[in-house]
Amino acid sequence: MARAFKSTPRGFTARLDTTERDLLRGLFEDVAQVLAPGHDGEAPAGEVDPLWAMVGMDPRTHAAGFAAPTDAAERRLLPDAVRDDPEAALEYRRLTETSLRETKTGNLKAAALAMETGNLVFDTAAANQFAQALNDVRLVLAERLELRDEADAERIADMTDARNVGDVDEYLALLYNFVTWLQETLMQALLGDL
């Protein structure tokens, strides 16, 4: 049974059992997969031209057919930065999307690695990074659960008992609530230390 995050002299600590860690590791890896270029018919990651790499740019985002992601979960992770102006949003995306994918993927991979042990101990920077990974997992689960408004949120929040799980959506809701609980305890610990 998981123990909530708390702030201690050693850092931010929590305890997770093997099943919980396996579940979370799977979720972190799944979301990293959503962010991998090429998973959704986009240009796959190929060899990066050293000149592009040198200026920190990605030729894929400057290619003629470059567009915002079509997968809803991926789009929620990489949202438009300009409202009601697709052209300006795409321009911003060209310059920032690769870096945002890398940041998020790095957070998720670090979080997956942290699942190697049941006793989590994070310094503030690592706790911050873990919180971002948990949040991205929640965003993707929420998209799969079609969580759109507060009423949906209340419906999903009721699913907290594994014995009541009857279908995939109920299972996803259970996972969502577990990740939400863990993130909330981490937030209370981090906020208490600010």
């Binding site: 992770l77 949202p79 438009d80 930065a81 300009v82 409202r83 920032t96 870096s99 971002q132 929640r138």
Partner: peptide
């Protein structure tokens, strides 16, 4: 503001600029 938007997106907040 462009840099702040990128940071908000890395946190998963739904941010835009204008």
């Amino acid at each position: 503001i462009e840099a702040d938007v990128a940071a908000m997106h890395s946190y998963g907040l739904w941010a835009t600029f204008q």
